Amino acid sequence: MDPIRRVRKAVIPVAGNGTRFLPATKAMPKEMLTVVDRPVVQYALDEAREAGIEHIVFVTGRNKQAIQDHFDDAPELISSLSRSGKTAQVSELEAMLPAAGTVSFTRQQAPLGLGHAVWCARDLIGNEPFALLLPDMICHGPRGCMAGLIDLYNFAGGNVVGVEQCPPEETYKYGIVGKGDAVPHGFEVTGMVEKPRAGEAPSNYFLNGRYILQPEIFDLLARQERGAGNEIQLTDSMLHLSKNQRFHAHPYEGQTFDCGSKQGFIEANVALALSRPDIGGMVFESVRHMVLTHESRIQAA
Rank of each mutant, 00 (worst) to 15 (best):
Ala48Met: 08
Ala198Tyr: 06
Glu267His: 11
Gly264Pro: 13
Ser82Trp: 00
Asp72Glu: 04
Gly186Pro: 12
Arg122Lys: 15
Thr171Pro: 15
Gln233Trp: 04
Asp72Ala: 14
Trp119Glu: 13
Phe130Asn: 07
Leu124Met: 11
Ser275Lys: 12
Val41Pro: 06
Asp136Val: 01
Ser261His: 13
Gly61Arg: 09
Asn204Ala: 08
Gln224Trp: 04
Leu274Cys: 08
Leu22Glu: 06
Val103Phe: 06
Gly162Glu: 10
Phe130Tyr: 06
Ile176Leu: 03
Pro196Ala: 02
Gly85Pro: 00
Arg122Ile: 12
Gln263Ser: 13
Pro3Lys: 11
Ile232Ser: 11
Ser203Val: 03
Asn154Arg: 15
Gly148Ser: 12
Gly113Ala: 11
Ser80Cys: 11
Tyr205Leu: 09
Ala74Glu: 12
Leu45Ile: 11
Leu234His: 09
Asn159Trp: 00
Val193Ser: 12
Asp46Gly: 15
Val270His: 10
Arg276Asp: 14
His140Glu: 09
Ala110Val: 11
Ala88Lys: 14
Val291Asp: 03
Cys139Trp: 01
Leu45Gly: 08
Met282Phe: 06
Pro98Asn: 10
Gln165Met: 09
Ile298Met: 13
Leu220Val: 10
Ser91Gln: 14
Pro277Arg: 14
Glu253Phe: 14
Gly260Gln: 04
Gly209Pro: 02
Ser261Pro: 02
Gly209Phe: 04
Ile138Leu: 07
Pro39Val: 05
Val287Ser: 07
Val189Ser: 00
Leu45Pro: 05
Arg83Cys: 07
Gly191Asp: 01
Leu241Phe: 08
Ala110Pro: 12
Gly186Val: 03
Leu45Ser: 09
Glu200Cys: 02
Val36Thr: 10
Ile138Phe: 04
Thr171His: 03
Gly254Glu: 06
Val7Asp: 01
Ala27Met: 03
Asp72Tyr: 02
Met238Asn: 03
Thr106Gly: 13
Val183Cys: 00
Pro3Asn: 07
Glu216Ile: 03
Pro202His: 09
Ser91Pro: 00
Gly157Asp: 07
Gln108Cys: 12
Pro196Thr: 02
Ile266Asp: 00
Tyr174Ser: 09
Ala44Asp: 02
Arg38Met: 05
Asp73Lys: 13
